[in-house]
């Protein structure tokens, strides 16, 4: 499969869609705690919003077998409620939604292995490829995720597996905060051997659902 060339973008405005893995099965075994992870991600999201006033951020939390949109920077700002005090809108709103979301978690021990889901995921990746939306992946698990590697590869995104999770913010900012326009001028991590084995999807599907933050980036329609 040939990877798409990234489109020529004239400006540095981005719409960043973050898929945040909030699956408790993964975070229970992870080397970095979810709250630590979240603080890196929040700083990263702030830096996206800082870079350009037209930038937008959408966060989708993905769980074990569900997902929900929990934050959209373009929706009108929530009024500060007194209990949140001076806590900035992004945090308060996001944390609240994240809590609501995780309360609704159906905690089940038996993961579903329906092949139909695989088809849906691949469809999503192919349509991202077709509409030239790069999928970047940042993977904090123990082994490389062949699945995400492939997804990033065919959509022209970047796949990173940070060596030091305590410096996660620096990885996020260095690689993923790069707008598509600047990507054509900067040295970014290149795939060092993508695992193309088709079997990997089925063989590792459950273990590799532990992606930390996949991120789609899209130039605004305007």
């Amino acid at each position: 499969m040939t990877s798409v060339q990234s489109k020529l973008y004239a400006d540095d405005v981005s719409l960043v869609v973050v898929l945040l893995d909030a699956n408790p099965f993964f975070w229970a075994t992870s080397s970095i705690s979810f709250s630590q992870f979240l603080s890196h991600v929040l700083a990263f999201l702030n830096s996206i919003l800082l870079l350009n006033q037209l930038n937008q951020v959408v966060i989708i939390a993905t769980g074990h077998n569900s997902c929900d949109c929990i934050y959209d920077s373009s929706s009108p700002p929530q009024t500060h409620s007194s209990e949140n005090g001076a806590l900035p809108a992004l945090y308060a709103h996001l944390l609240q939604r994240l809590e609501e979301y995780s309360e609704g978690f159906p905690i089940r021990a038996t993961p579903s292995t329906a092949p139909s889901e695989y088809v849906a995921i691949m469809n999503a990746i192919f349509s991202a490829q077709r509409s030239m939306v790069p999928i970047d992946s940042c993977y904090v698990g123990a082994h490389n995720s062949a699945f995400l590697q492939q997804a990033s590869h065919i959509t022209g995104g970047v796949y990173v597996k940070p060596q030091h999770t305590d410096g996660l913010f620096q990885y996020l900012v260095t690689v993923f905060a790069t707008d598509l326009h600047s990507r054509s001028f900067l040295q970014l991590p290149r795939p060092a051997g993508v695992d193309f084995r088709a079997s990997s999807v089925f063989g590792q599907a459950q273990g590799d659902a532990s992606s930390a933050a996949d991120r789609k980036r899209k130039a605004p329609e305007t």
Binding site: L51, F169, V173, T174, S182
Partner: peptide, 21 residues
Amino acid sequence: CEAILRSLPPLAKKYVLQLLY
């Protein structure tokens, strides 16, 4: 600081962000 950062060319913004910490 914020307004000035936003007025910078894209590469310059990146450099500042990467060197921030």
